[in-house]
Design a binder for these strands. Structure first.
Length: 558
RNA sequence: UGCGGAUUGGUGUAACGGUAGCACGACUGACUCUGGAUCAGUUUGUUGAGGUUCGAAUCCUUAAUCCGCAGCCA
């Protein structure tokens, strides 16, 4: 008996609508504006829009909300499509564009004029703002508000025909300049922009505003539930107003949910752009960016992201989710699917002095203890090996289970070795460790029941392949990057150690064929993924997605 | 001092008048050829004040705090 997962408020609404028969099939839409790259905040909307449709056997359209030619571009539509597909959501052949409906939208505007519900205004932008009033004071009516229907029709057509310059005139809905909801103070619904559009070219020089376009686009596509974020709640009455005045049958309904915030990062297009353009990161797909392309390059999986969104739930409460939960989700997934490999990131050489100099042995090592079906691989062993600098200490604290002078440790899947000596340079840095091995411990078994607490990873020196490894950490070192003293800036909180590049890391030879975006767990270190931009077959680059939980680090820091 | 929305452990989210639960985190312990994983357990919460009720996170009143809205952006 699977336990019942409680429903979120949107699912309750949908189920109620299905039950009462208000709708017979669910139709949603995911409406990104093609003016930037998708980030994990958009993923929440994506999961809700596609997820609700998926769950209730309905459909979700991808619709580009492209009503502002100044800001939008095809390069974004292609990137967005790529990201949605990567996330695994299905929009079939239903890729629509708000601009596909410009003709229909124009007709609706004409209809509004004919009903005496829209007028052409000659006020300029500044004047419109002045006339709008303030939050506490009502606005006042434009002197052009009461033009005749005929005159409005004529003017609007001439706007369309390009007889006026950009900004010279607008079409406004005629509602109520004294409304307590500012959105009702005769909102602009069409503006003149003599700009080519990325899809309609020069056909139009007037473009509809979001508030007018969105409900009608939804209606045209037969959307049943128009799901959006909470800042549109104030616009909902206006959304409904257009549908009502234009007498749209079975009108779509809008519901709002809180947008996603995550600690230690920023999720605003403006700020992300600032990071890219200021060179604080390498680009929109920098592995530290919360963009989908960045997360992908970092090694996050679509499954882990979807699970994350699932775990955080949906509500109308503003909230900030801990970045740690995202990390938990990716560890959880990668633990199950990522093959294990051995890699030494900060190598120090160990010479096993009683091991034959020319001997090479191969050990069978399991690829994933969580999944025996992943089988085993051969890992070569020889006299000279590399181990992690951190895995040897001359004068260790209590509870340090790794290698130390006179101490014994297990080399994972190989032998027990005992440290017999070491060499240091002038700075006291260990340059070489001498050891002996116990031939009876072959395979890592303790033949006499001898207890060895520590097990460390290693790579055979003569078989190792070199690679660059990029250690990524949180982009900001504070929970809320915007938390800065007077005159400060979110960029002041950038984590200077969000990227540490390690060259000459030593990897086990089976990694030679690793492909871009292939993911591994480097034993005892974390999850790593082949970089999809800079890695080359003869010069591998790995990105650290996330470290393993590190209990020792916690103990050591106490 | 306009209108709209919100407030449950450290964080996120359930409970729809009847035992405040789940997840993440934190902390114990067990186990372990990854100080990973796994397993067992502990910890912390209904914004305040009144009221209705046998019984309130839930209903009512009131207060506080936070968020959004004054683009020819979406």
């Amino acid at each position: 008996m699977a336990e019942e997962k409680s429903k979120n408020f949107i699912e309750e609404i949908v189920e109620e609508d299905l039950r009462t028969g208000r709708v017979k099939e669910i139709q949603t839409r995911f409406p990104p504006e093609p003016n930037g790259y998708l980030h994990i905040g958009h993923t929440k909307a994506m999961c809700i829009d596609f997820g609700i449709a998926e769950k209730y056997g309905g459909k979700c359209n991808l619709r580009f909300d492209d009503t502002n030619p100044e800001k939008e571009d095809v390069k974004y539509v292609n990137a967005i499509i790529k990201d949605i597909k990567w996330m695994g959501f299905d929009f079939g052949d239903r890729v629509y564009y708000g601009s596909d409906y410009f003709d229909k939208l124009y007709d609706y505007a004409v209809e509004l004029i004919k009903k005496g519900l829209a007028y052409v205004d000659d006020l300029d932008a500044d004047q419109i703002r002045e006339y709008r009033g303030t939050l506490t004071e009502p606005g006042k009516e434009s002197p052009w508000r009461n033009r005749s229907i005929e005159e409005n029709l004529d003017l609007f057509e001439r706007m369309k025909n390009g007889e006026f310059e950009s900004g010279e005139k607008v079409l406004r809905a005629k509602i109520d300049m004294a409304s307590p909801n500012i959105n009702f103070r005769d909102p602009v619904i069409y503006r003149i922009k003599k700009e080519p559009h990325h899809r309609t070219g020069d056909k139009w020089c007037i473009y509809p505003m979001y508030d007018f376009a969105h409900p009608l686009q939804d209606a045209i596509e037969g959307i049943t539930h128009s799901l959006c974020s909470i800042e549109f709640a104030n616009n909902r009455p206006l959304y409904e107003w257009f549908l009502e005045k234009l007498e749209i049958p079975n009108p779509p309904r809008q519901y709002e949910f809180a947008r996603l915030n995550i600690t230690h990062t920023v999720l605003s297009k403006r700020k992300l752009r600032e990071l890219v353009e200021g060179g604080y990161v390498s680009g929109w797909n920098d592995p530290r960016m919360p963009t989908l392309s960045g997360l992908r390059r970092r090694g996050f999986t679509p499954e882990s992201i979807r699970n994350f969104i699932d775990l955080i739930g949906i509500s109308r409460t503003n909230s900030v989710v801990d970045w740690g939960l995202l990390e938990h989700c990716v560890r959880d997934h990668l633990n199950k699917v990522a093959d294990r490999r051995m890699a030494v990131l900060r190598p120090v050489k160990v010479v096993i002095e009683n091991y034959p100099e020319d001997l090479v042995e191969e050990f069978d090592v399991e690829n994933n203890p969580e999944d025996p079906s992943k089988g085993t691989r051969k890992v070569p062993f020889s006299r000279d090996i590399y181990i992690e600098e951190d895995d040897f200490m001359i004068d260790p604290p209590r509870k340090y289970f790794r290698l130390k002078p006179g101490g014994e440790v297990r080399l994972k899947n190989a032998y027990f070795i005992k440290c017999t000596g070491y060499e240091t340079d002038e700075n006291g840095k260990v340059t070489l460790i001498r050891a002996t091995y116990d031939p009876a411990s072959r395979g890592g078994e303790s033949p006499d029941g001898r207890k060895v607490r520590g097990t460390i990873h290693w790579v055979s020196a003569k078989h190792a392949i070199d690679a660059e490894v990029r250690l990524y950490d949180m982009l900001f070192n504070v929970e809320n990057p915007d938390d800065v003293p007077e005159g400060g800036d979110f960029k002041d909180n950038l984590n200077p150690e969000s990227l540490i590049v390690l060259k000459n890391c030593k990897l086990e030879p089976s990694l030679k064929e690793a492909q871009p975006e292939e993911k591994f767990q480097f034993l005892r270190l974390g999850y790593f993924c082949v970089d999809n931009v800079d890695s080359r077959p003869d010069a591998l680059v790995f990105n650290r997605t996330v470290g393993l939980k590190d209990t020792w680090a916690k103990i050591a820091s106490k």
